[in-house]
Nucleic acid binder design. Sequence first.
DNA 1: TAAAATTTATCGTTATTTTCTATTAATATC
DNA 2: GATATTAATAGAAAATAACGATAAATTTTA
Lengths: 327, 327
Amino acid sequence: MQVSTLSLRDLEYALAVARQRHFGKAAEACHVSQPTLSSQIHKLEEQLGMAIFERSTRRVAASARGEALLQQAEVVLAEAQRLLDMAQHLSVPMSGTLRLGAIATLGPYYFPHLLRTTHRAYPSLALRLTEGKTAELIQSLRRGELDCILAALPVAMSGLAMQTVFFEPFFLVAPVQHPLAHHATPTLASIRTRELLLLEEGHCLRDQALQLCRGNNSTVQRHATGLETLWHMIAAGEGYSLLPALSVVKRATLGMVAVRPLLESGAGRMIALIWRNRDPRSREFAQYARLLQSKAPSGVWAEASLPAARPRFSKKNEALRASKKKQ
Amino acid sequence: MQVSTLSLRDLEYALAVARQRHFGKAAEACHVSQPTLSSQIHKLEEQLGMAIFERSTRRVAASARGEALLQQAEVVLAEAQRLLDMAQHLSVPMSGTLRLGAIATLGPYYFPHLLRTTHRAYPSLALRLTEGKTAELIQSLRRGELDCILAALPVAMSGLAMQTVFFEPFFLVAPVQHPLAHHATPTLASIRTRELLLLEEGHCLRDQALQLCRGNNSTVQRHATGLETLWHMIAAGEGYSLLPALSVVKRATLGMVAVRPLLESGAGRMIALIWRNRDPRSREFAQYARLLQSKAPSGVWAEASLPAARPRFSKKNEALRASKKKQ
DNA sequence: TAAAATTTATCGTTATTTTCTATTAATATC
DNA sequence: GATATTAATAGAAAATAACGATAAATTTTA
């Protein structure tokens, strides 16, 4: 005898008979015909290998042994009901826990803003945040250890889906005494990779900076393990670098480094929310990305294209009006 | 959404998919085809209002939310399994608790013997014993408060079934100084109801004694509330009575009362085990009655007929050989 | 004692659900 | 781009559960 051959419906029938002490009334309560009830109770008793009820035309009552079974049947049904309740609860969109990763050169600068926005839109959602390099995050995502990640495009998207969130321009950050610090709007062409300070291998920011300067003479660069260290190295006059807007925006410039926009170059990176394309929450995630897009922090753009005649650090959301129309 | 529309089988399918992480293998484990699994999982997800699994041709895994549901699904199935186990346990014949009643003029004298016999034959059976008057016992039995009773026939049997256990002869018990005490084998005709001591109303023994003496002149009798009191009253010289064999058998006769058989009269009562005829354990009860019959205590007969040339207190079981052949 | 009333069980049929085989669609690997 | 793997789909078949009508059993009423 297999559990799976038991029917929860039959258990309800049995409980109805126990409650009503009458097949006809129980059938009515269950919205089925009396013969249906009779035969299903019979079947159930057959499966259990014993009679649950003692019945005559005058009296229907659970036998002493049947009573014990009915009690357990109630437990089974209660647990099944709990399953349904849980499902109902869990199926609320953007509730529960969201495990979100972001690349290390974005997370520390963006998470505070993201947390505020997310909590405001989805009060019942708990965020579990992670930082890492793109490859690590993608692997965790593929393994199901993360639900979605924020990374810079392009990313190998096989099996994944994404929605862009914002374009984060790069800035040239150089020591104040460096010649480049004096150009109002320096060009990429003026950068020498020999003097370029970069992050260690694995950070997409390193690759993107290198690619932007790939026309230039490339020699060995000095590298830092983190963005903060890089800032200190620049301040120490070790060289200059291309750094993303959000790492610039709230930094108390110490007077030792100069931050110069690279407006005409289009230098920067497109940040996207990425998730497994078979994740049942795909729609929720896409909508979440669009929410983040519409509430993007100041200092970033809606698209990679240069926003003409626009202040470097636009007022909040101003840069995103065009993209909103798209939605 | 109703609990009863959930299928335990579908829950097993879902758990199999979670375990195997592969629809094909899960199908094999469940002994069904892969499309069956696929469609049933779909149906289940539809019922729960959310996807349990995240599936691609490469990877099948429970989503974070699905995991919680699967855990609860295991609970549901475990409780259902428990129901089956309980049924298996309960369906063992003559196990659990048997609520047995006996008329007050039999119980105290027969229960010790019955307990021994019953426990020996059914070690896993717990007996809950009750005493009462016939009408009370029958009512309790009809209400389902008792499983079966031992009473003297005849009894209104509507809705009930029975199996005789033994015939318990009556003895004339009189004070030693009384003339009747000197007859070796007194007759019923010699009894005067004026001197007959009886139990109070409601005891079948009272009615049976009266009926046996109905030809005699009947006047008001003195009565006692219990059989023990009656013995004391007889010993005090208050009168005499007809008393059942088992109440005589182990009594330390004090020399103050004489016990005389009424062999030729057939005076006595047929004790039967009675139960509700729709009780699913009817067969077990009938068999139990036959067991009690075969292990009847000494002092009783298998049948109402006079066992010719037989000692008053036959050796154990000797009186029952005839009845055994019938079985 | 017989008839009436009540109630569960049975019978034959219909409707629904589950399962199957065959095939398609999607995706990853070579 | 071909091949292999795997879940999803389609349509038919089988199994199960449902119904209405009626029988059988038993108690109550006349």
